[in-house]
């Protein structure tokens, strides 16, 4: 299970919808405490894939990743997952996503903008095995 605030969930959708107009895949990173289910930060990142392939591929910009990693570390978090969008296909990890999944402990959010209403789902990918996990929306705690 992965728990995310409505604001972070909306940030992922807004990024995916904005990139879909190009059309290009949006991508970014999720931070939280290791082993915890809460997303504490969402870091939108650039897509460094060749421009003509960005509607089908993403390569997370390496310098954006370094900045996100440093910000997460400064807050006592780790990068615990990645999100990206599909402009023309369902919100399911593609064979490429599965083959290139970098970390078995990560959460993999896929947002699809194929339909007018975006669909956001979360998965784990361990040794090539994909399992969907509940993505729970939560409001931030009252102050």
């Amino acid at each position: 299970m992965l728990r995310i605030t409505r604001a972070h969930w909306q940030a992922i959708i807004d990024h995916a919808v904005a990139e879909a107009t190009k059309p290009a895949e949006a991508c970014g990173l999720l931070a939280g405490e290791l082993g915890d289910i809460d997303v504490k930060a969402v870091y939108p990142c650039g897509n460094a894939a060749p421009a003509e392939k960005q509607d089908m591929l993403y390569e997370l910009d390496s310098h954006d990743y370094l900045k996100a990693d440093r910000d997460a570390q400064a807050n006592g978090w780790e990068i615990i997952g990645v999100y990206h969008s599909h402009t023309h296909t369902e919100a399911l990890p593609s064979p490429t996503d599965i083959a290139q999944a970098p970390d078995p402990s990560w959460h993999y959010i896929v947002a699809s903008t194929r339909l007018p209403t975006p669909v956001v789902r979360s998965f784990t990918i361990v040794d090539g095995e994909v399992a969907e996990e509940p993505l729970v929306l939560e409001r931030p705690p009252a102050k």
């Binding site: 089908m56 591929l57 993403y58 390569e59 390496s62 370094l66 990890p93 490429t96 290139q100 970098p102």
Partner: peptide, 10 residues
């Protein structure tokens, strides 16, 4: 020196 995964997909 920082090592991070290269994150990519389709």
């Amino acid at each position: 020196v920082t090592i991070l995964p290269a994150v990519a997909g389709g």
